[in-house]
Design a protein around this nucleic acid. Structure first.
Length: 779
DNA sequence: GTTCTAGAAC
DNA sequence: GTTCTAGAAC
């Protein structure tokens, strides 16, 4: 790879142009997260000439502005003799053409291409908060990938006098050094610097996207189902730096082939070149510490794999073990060959399952873990290695999803984007699997009962593969809709309802600090509570109680200003459009068409704009009880009654359609007057669910589960009210918690997501389903 | 060009 | 709560 040499600054070529005092227009190019702003700041902090950074995200008094404003500012700066950085993505030729016209007699135009791995950019974008471009969360992956697909590399013919490509952090550092060192009389040599290959007309990432870097089909076939140290070690360059694009390795491999050295085993090239395919890497379950018979286990693996591959297309399964002497790998390899299992769809692989990509070039977006029943780290072997490699965040994400696992089962856990396994290995999910145990020293010992043992092992693989298929399916759908393949399920989840501060203390508080609630923003003067409201009473009574403070709940300590606002606030007023439910409650006889059930205390009616297949309201008829914040201990019997009626209706719906799952609860701050309990099916399959507010009002802590509200009122005399700011949170699937850039994409994901509900919803009767009996026992 | 969001009006 | 719509995002 090209390395920069600052000493070229003093070349003869430069001497010639010294004294012309040309200013510079440096057009940065790179997707969000590639480090454009950092590059500018790094240069400017130690620059020897005067630079101005033009950023479209902040050009309009700190806010995003138009391209024309950028052009004007740049022209002005150049007139003043300053050099400018154009800090915007500029990935397409058209986008940067206008900026190129800034060049001329007085100014040279350079390009600095921050061509870093897409995953790194996505990971940075996802992680950052408060960025000028406001590109965070699940949106980032989609945007980065879409931008990269359209990327057109700069060419000198566009009018650049110099183009510098940076493909890793070191390249960036060198480029910063060069531009920092430039004083007003220096110029840099013209030409293209740092490009990977002189012949590369199209950048490799694009080539990979266009599937141009492929090994001919006939070279990929073969019976050999193994890639191990013998075939692979020398042929695949070991990567010292993480996140290197696979295509570069492929090219290097290809080049080696051309040179006639280090020729590759055909099978390994074939398998590795299809790294785009969704791949599950899994260890042999139960054959190590659980001492399951290898012959029987290998039979089951091969049968399970064959069954699965018959049903599911476009995926790859890889059985991994650490040593090429592995007995189970040999057995499976032989049996897979006997059964003529396609070696492109299933093969064995020797390597560390936690470093398949960085060390071996094999990208596996999902890996399986041979877990223990407590789903705890440690214990040695694969389990210890995976938990160690994934970091604490896997432990947390796992515990949040499920407490324990029984033999024959598995659980898929989306990896938080902060996990090194996610960042460097590209692993988006870990599926924990528990197999049968034949070791008397371990729990659930089966005493050599291989009838049961084989059954359990089959179940384990079948469960594992089903989870993998489900992940793959939802991912492919997103890819089909133009979304990112790396954003299989952005697992960064920090603000789900029920998420406690113990679980995500830092992330929650960080969000609170960095994005204080803009009280003035909501000009429509929403519900403001009186100083003696239930909400404040709750806070006064339970400020230091064991309840989780989510960090964005409204009962966080108030600033003086906020306290003043609360103190002077008056009882909420309701707009005319917010009176409809009140009318229904007071005069149900006038609304016979809408009303499904009437009693003295309540009215049941269909939500006029249902946000799911089934969505009804159980409306209190008590005058003066407008919302959850008004509820006090004296209303406890009423609350229980509303809940019981809601459950009855849910059960009625379940008798018609047992596939539904219901949740019952209140909006923290309702839009309509008159206390009403939502009974809503969890499919959210409705054309009326149209925006972020709709989604988040049912799928963040803004939605207060009826059972929790009742419990809190019983214990503390008031239910907790959570902040309306939750309604603006990023969109996350209520099942697998993946983030989605917009409502249509979220809805198409939700329509197919088969993940089990997060564990906190499975408790305290929060969900009512055909199989749950718990809820009817509740209040 | 189309899709999507978010603010204002009701 | 919804509808409408400008303009941002794609």
């Amino acid at each position: 790879m090209f390395t920069f040499s600052p000493f070229r600054l003093l070349s003869e070529e430069q001497e010639e142009v010294k004294g012309k005092r040309k200013t510079l227009v440096v057009i940065l190019m790179g997707p969000p997260g590639s480090g454009k702003t950092t590059f500018c700041n790094d240069v400017m902090s130690s620059a020897r000439r005067c630079w101005v950074r033009i950023c479209q995200d902040t050009i309009a008094n700190g806010k995003a502005g138009a391209k024309s404003q950028c052009l004007k500012s740049a022209a002005d700066a150049l007139k003043d003799g300053k050099s400018v950085f154009i800090d915007r993505c500029n990935l397409e030729r058209d986008q940067r053409a206008d900026f190129l016209r800034l060049g001329g007699a007085q100014a040279d135009v350079h390009a600095v291409v921050l061509d870093l791995p897409a995953r790194l950019c996505i990971s940075r974008s996802v992680n950052r908060t408060g960025h000028e471009g406001n590109l965070q969360g699940g949106k980032a992956a989609a945007v980065v990938n879409r931008m990269l697909q359209k990327k057109e590399l700069p060419q000198l013919s566009e009018g650049f006098s110099r183009i510098t490509f940076c493909q890793n952090e070191n390249d960036v550092k060198n480029a910063v050094k060069i531009y920092s060192a430039l004083d007003l009389s220096d110029t840099l040599p013209s030409g293209v610097f740092g490009q990977r290959s002189k012949d590369a007309k199209v950048q490799l990432g694009i080539m990979k996207f266009l599937k141009k870097v492929e090994i001919p089909e006939n070279e990929t076939s073969g019976k050999c189902n193994v890639i191990d140290d013998n075939t692979c070690q020398d042929s695949i360059p070991r990567q010292e730096t993480c996140g290197k694009d696979l295509c570069s390795m492929e090219l290097e491999m290809e080049n080696k082939d051309k040179k006639g050295s280090d020729s590759l085993e055909k099978s390994s090239v074939g398998d590795l070149s299809s790294n785009d395919v969704h791949t599950l890497a899994f260890p042999s379950i139960s054959t190590a510490d659980f001492q399951f018979d290898h012959e029987k286990a290998s039979d089951i693996i091969v049968e399970s794999v064959a069954d699965f591959l018959r049903k599911v297309d476009n995926v790859r399964l890889v059985l991994v073990d650490l040593s090429h002497k592995s007995n189970i790998l040999s057995l499976v390899r032989a049996k897979a060959a006997e059964r003529n299992i396609d070696s492109k769809k299933f093969f064995t692989f020797v390597g560390d399952i936690t470093q398949l990509y960085t060390k071996r070039g094999l990208r596996c977006n999902v890996i399986a873990n041979a877990a223990n029943w407590r789903l705890k780290p440690g214990g040695g072997g694969v389990n210890a290695a995976i938990f160690k490699a994934a970091g604490k965040s896997l432990e947390i994400a796992t515990k949040e999803r499920i407490e324990t696992l029984s033999p024959g089962n598995s659980v898929a856990v989306p990896l938080p984007s902060t996990s090194p396994l996610y960042k460097f290995e590209g692993v988006t999910h870990v599926i924990h699997v528990l197999g049968p145990n034949m070791n008397p020293q371990r729990p659930n010992y089966l005493k050599n009962n291989y009838v049961k043992g084989c059954m359990v092992l089959r179940d384990a693989y079948s469960s594992l593969f089903e989870h993998f298929a489900s992940i793959s399916k939802s991912c492919l759908q997103r890819e089909g809709s133009g979304d990112s393949r790396y954003n299989l399920s952005d697992p960064q989840s920090n603000l789900m309802e029920g998420t406690t501060s113990e679980q995500f203390p830092q992330s929650d508080q960080k969000i609170k600090r960095e994005d204080p609630y803009d009280f003035e923003r909501n000009k429509r003067s929403k519900g403001i509570l009186t100083e003696s409201s239930s909400k404040d009473k709750y806070n006064m009574q339970h400020g230091d109680h064991g309840f989780a403070e989510s960090g964005i709940n409204s009962d966080a300590p108030k600033s003086d200003d906020e306290s003043r606002k609360t103190a002077v606030a008056t009882k909420r007023t309701w707009g005319s459009w917010a009176q409809a439910l009140y009318e229904n409650a007071m005069h149900p006889e006038k609304h016979k068409n809408a009303v499904m059930e009437i009693s003295n205390e309540y009215v049941v009616l269909n939500d006029r704009y249902p946000k799911a297949k089934k969505h009804i309201l159980v409306l209190s008829r008590l005058h003066g009880l407008d919302c959850l914040a008004d509820v006090q201990k004296e209303h406890l019997p009423l609350m229980k009654q509303l809940h019981a009626v809601g459950v009855q209706w849910a059960e009625r719906f379940l008798s018609e359609d047992a596939s539904l799952v219901f949740r019952l609860g209140y909006h923290s701050v309702p839009s309509m007057r008159q206390l009403h309990l939502h009974v809503i099916s969890q499919d959210f399959d409705s054309t009326h669910l149209k925006n972020k507010k709709h989604w988040n009002s049912f799928n963040t802590a803004f939605f207060r589960d009826s059972t929790d509200a009742i419990e809190e009122i019983d214990k503390y005399g008031a239910a907790k009210i959570n902040d309306e700011k939750l309604l603006t949170m990023e969109l996350r699937c209520h099942r697998c918690r993946s983030a989605h850039p917009n409502i249509p994409k979220l809805k198409s994901h939700v329509a197919n997501c088969k993940f089990s509900f997060p564990s906190h919803l499975l408790h305290n009767g929060r969900l009512v389903s055909a199989s749950s009996k718990t809820v009817s026992e509740k209040p």
